[in-house]
Simulated assay, not measured.
Amino acid sequence: MTVSWTAHRFSGGVLALDTANTVVLRGDAERSFDRFADPLEIARFAVAATTFRVDELEGRALAAPAPHAIADKVLAIREATDRLFRRGVATGALAASDMAELLKACADGLAGSGETFGPDAPFGRSERPIAFEAALAVSALSLMAADSLGRMRICPNCRWLFIDRSRNGSRLWCDMAVCGNRQKAKRHYNRRKEEVLDA
């Protein structure tokens, strides 16, 4: 199945969370599905992420020319990111065992990249594209900064992870136009149904 990689698919706020959110309806065994089940979608996602994550990547393009060859690394980083931060949001702390898993997956993603990174250029300064798995590792590692966990949320509608960048830290939905409106419509429907039953 070809995925339409629209702006909504990048509601996580950073590349690593957008990637974690490529598993839809996590925790719902009957309805959950993986948008990366076809590794070719990794390459298509990387192209879209180059546009939708241009600020985070500081203009660097993402490269995934051989998605089948990097799929295991990408999926390992994705799953370790989701596990660490989903549990972190629930408990308010990051588990050492989950951190170790993420660090190992990120090390594999960075191995052999030849990139150099610095505090003022987290994705490097090269003009050439950065390997998707290396950029994904850098994005995931950046989430371990102290302020990230405090601003991370789980959308109550779709269960996606996202960074709340609202001024007062009160954002509920990963995307108000999609999940927020769905929840509002659902509440409205339930109220109308109760009114009909009470009549």
Rank of each mutant, 00 (worst) to 15 (best):
T2D: 15
S11P: 07
S11D: 11
G13F: 08
L17W: 03
D18H: 01
V23Y: 11
V24P: 01
V24N: 01
S32M: 12
D38Q: 08
P39E: 10
I42G: 05
R44I: 10
F52Q: 11
E56I: 05
G59R: 06
R60Y: 03
A64K: 00
A64R: 00
D72N: 08
E79V: 03
A80E: 06
A80Y: 07
R83Q: 12
R87D: 15
A93F: 13
S97L: 12
A100G: 06
E101F: 06
L102Q: 02
L103M: 12
K104N: 06
D120C: 02
G124F: 06
E127Y: 06
P129E: 14
L136F: 00
S139N: 08
L143E: 10
L143R: 06
M144W: 09
A146Q: 10
S148E: 09
L149R: 12
M152C: 07
R153K: 10
W160S: 12
G169M: 06
C179L: 04
N181I: 03
R182E: 10
Q183T: 03
K184C: 00
A185G: 09
R187M: 12
R187L: 12
H188Y: 14
R192F: 07
E194I: 09
E194A: 15
E194M: 14
V196M: 15
A199K: 12
